[in-house]
Design a binder for these strands. Sequence first.
DNA 1: GCATTAACCACAG
DNA 2: CTGTGGTTAATGC
Length: 229
Amino acid sequence: MYMPGKVNCESCLIKSCAAEVLNKQELQVLSANCAGVSYKKNEKLFQQGFLCSNIVYVKTGIVKIHKTGPLKDQILKIVKSPRFIGIPTVLGGKVNHYSATALTPATVCFIVTDIFKTLILRNGKFANEVINSICQDELNFYDLSINQMQKQIHGRLADALLFLSDEIFESDSFELPLSRSDLGDYIQATRESVTRALSRLKADGLIDMQGRQINLVDKKMLEKISKLG
DNA sequence: GCATTAACCACAG
DNA sequence: CTGTGGTTAATGC
């Protein structure tokens, strides 16, 4: 997982919306306090309960945000690059309240916390972008929560498949980056229930599936299941 | 009661 | 890591 490298934020092609509004001098400061790191699949970017020293910007790859509760691990959300993760931790505390793990190979920039805070204080536009992304996150999370609370397993699974298809892969056919058990941690079900629910979808001809290769055949129907719960 | 849902357990590839 | 089957507790007619 180690391969820290210098980065140049000015010429970075995958700048965040927030970094987009920084001026030249600010970008130079950012570059000087930013380190690029590559991760392999299943490597942890940071871990719950550990001191957090940096803010994380995911440049490429897909990452899961997860947290160990009283009983088991739960996946809070799956995010696609480019995206900041861990802003609430940086602004709200010193210890990670959750973990982040790469689901695919990923490249990441670590930004020194103090620099991030300084940019927020100095540049209103930057702060505004950061707030926007936090708000978006919160609204999305409300939706996710309410859906998970009120739907039963078929609805939750349909939600997850549609989410992966629409938001993450932007394709009807993709390879699941999660094991059955992980998928269970994501939709609040056991791995057995996930297996059965997936088999059911396959048997009913709504999806095609070989191992982790998924092809959404009847999206309309999946949306219906998602709606009806 | 009876059916449905989904977790738990055990065993097998 | 997955799939399957039997069992079981909770919930709703």
